[in-house]
Computed example of a mutant assay.
Amino acid sequence: MNLYTIRRRDFWGTPEELQATAAKSAQVGAEMTDDVRWIRTYVVQEESGKLGTVCIYEGTSIEKVREQAERAGMPADEITLVADTVIVNPDPVAAVQA
Rank of each mutant, 00 (worst) to 15 (best):
Y57V: 10
D77L: 03
A69V: 05
A20G: 09
Q97G: 13
I39E: 13
S48I: 01
K24P: 06
T80N: 01
A83T: 13
G73C: 11
T33S: 06
N2Q: 14
A22W: 07
D84L: 09
L18W: 04
A83G: 14
P75K: 03
G49P: 01
I56N: 01
E58D: 03
A76W: 02
E63P: 02
T80I: 08
E67F: 04
I39Q: 13
I87C: 13
P75Q: 02
I79A: 03
E16V: 04
V93S: 06
E78F: 06
I39D: 14
P15Q: 07
L18G: 00
R8S: 08
K50C: 08
T41D: 07
R8T: 08
Y42G: 09
A20K: 15
Y42C: 09
A94Y: 12
V43L: 08
D84E: 11
A30D: 11
T60D: 08
N89Q: 15
Y57M: 13
G52S: 04
E67Y: 05
E70C: 12
V88G: 11
M74G: 08
G73M: 12
K50I: 04
P15F: 05
V93T: 07
E17S: 06
A20L: 15
V86K: 13
V44S: 07
V82R: 01
V44A: 10
A76C: 12
R71Y: 10
G73F: 11
A22L: 13
V93W: 10
V96H: 13
Q97T: 14
T5C: 02
I6E: 01
E46M: 12
K64C: 10
A26K: 15
C55N: 02
R40K: 14
G59T: 05
S61C: 03
V93L: 08
V96L: 14
W12Y: 07
Q27P: 05
I56P: 00
M74A: 11
K50G: 02
